[in-house]
């Protein structure tokens, strides 16, 4: 289907962009942190950028694993439920 294909392409592009932005943020973060500016706030901002970028990279890498974990758990629960006991027959007497 066209729309599914479109969403897939979009997702792929977003993923590539996300990796790119991770690299960019990581570099910007280190640049801020290592810059010769003696202001603590700038250093801290750089530090938080690096931290967020690392987390984002971690989740990006874990994406497939998380999804397959969810699929596995749900497929274990999602097996057809056995027939319920027939209440009508039990109250028949």
């Amino acid at each position: 289907m066209e729309i599914i294909e479109f969403i897939r392409q979009l997702t792929l592009q977003v993923m590539v962009a996300a990796w790119g932005i991770f690299v960019l943020t990581w570099i910007v973060g280190w640049a801020l942190r290592g810059a010769p500016i003696p202001i603590t706030r700038v250093k801290k901002a750089g530090n938080s950028l690096i931290e967020d970028a690392i987390w984002a990279a971690f989740w990006l890498a874990m994406g497939g694993t998380i999804f397959s974990l969810i699929s596995y758990i749900v497929s274990q629960i999602g097996v057809p439920v056995p027939e319920p006991p027939n209440i009508m027959n039990q109250t028949g007497t």
């Binding site: 997702t11 962009a17 996300a18 932005i21 991770f22 943020t25 990006l60």
Partner: peptide, 10 residues
């Protein structure tokens, strides 16, 4: 991925 992208924004 969008969420990760936003999270990774500088």
């Amino acid at each position: 991925f969008l969420g990760n992208l936003i999270k990774a924004l500088p």
